[in-house]
């Protein structure tokens, strides 16, 4: 089997870019949903009185990640069927763990004396959460979001298998028709998307990082 440069370039320039918007949707929507589930859950289990549930929540999210996304789809197939929706669902489940893990770790490592001082000065628990715990946790939470983002962009390839389209369509077409040119083109785009998304999120992270942590990093 020889490498057809023309087919490769054609795949790179004409066929793959069309899948980018779809693939971004398949990555960003689950990412967004995962953040909206994992972050509140992390906040909830780090409240005093609920800490004993943290282990259970982590176990649940851990399970979410050990099940391969395809298996998630298989399990929910009788209820959700195949296609775009189930793919989003499986990817969301998959992205939950890194975000939940980093969020719970971040919020529970806010120093006790800082939390204590904030309460002692007369902040309400909501003040403490919004003005102390979350600002101090954001860099670590963002690290989890970045991990989840990279993970989701590459896992979203599998969506093509259940009719969810995305960049996976071209990669699996390449596999089915023994055309490595297509597989390579699709993979390059997946890599590029991961890198760009990761860089963008790093910029967001930089803006959300409190000054003292920036200083600690550049030291």
């Amino acid at each position: 089997m020889n490498f057809d440069m023309e087919l490769f370039l054609q795949a790179m320039i004409h066929r793959s870019p069309g899948y980018i918007p779809e693939h971004l949707q398949l990555s960003l929507i689950p990412l967004f949903l995962a953040v909206s589930i994992a972050l509140p859950a992390a906040v909830l289990v780090t409240r005093p009185g609920y800490r004993q549930y943290a282990a259970h929540v982590m176990a649940f999210f851990n399970a979410g990640q050990t099940i391969p996304p395809l298996a998630v789809i298989a399990v929910f197939f009788p209820f959700l069927g195949l296609g775009y929706g189930p793919a989003l669902f499986a990817l969301t489940i998959y992205a939950l763990l890194p975000i939940a893990r980093s969020s719970i770790a971040a919020i529970s490592t806010v120093p006790e004396d800082v939390r204590d001082a904030a309460l002692g000065m007369g902040m309400t628990p909501v003040d403490v959460l919004l003005r102390v715990e979350l600002p101090l946790s954001l860099p670590t939470i963002m690290a989890g979001v970045k991990t989840a983002a990279v993970l989701t962009v590459s896992t979203a390839v599998l969506a093509a298998l259940v009719g969810g389209k995305g960049m996976g369509a071209i990669i699996f077409a390449g596999i089915n028709f023994f055309r490595p040119e297509l597989v390579l083109a699709g993979t390059i785009y997946i890599g590029l998307l991961s890198i760009i998304l990761e860089r963008l999120l790093s910029v967001v992270e930089w803006f959300l990082t409190p000054p003292h942590m920036k200083a600690a990093r550049s030291r």
């Binding site: 120093p111 004396d113 204590d116 001082a117 904030a118 007369g122 409190p210 003292h212 942590m213």
Partner: peptide, 15 residues
């Protein structure tokens, strides 16, 4: 808010 509290571990808000 009506009681000033100087904490043993100081506990300044680092950010």
């Amino acid at each position: 808010r009506t009681i000033g509290y100087v904490i043993q571990q100081v506990g300044l808000l680092p950010h």
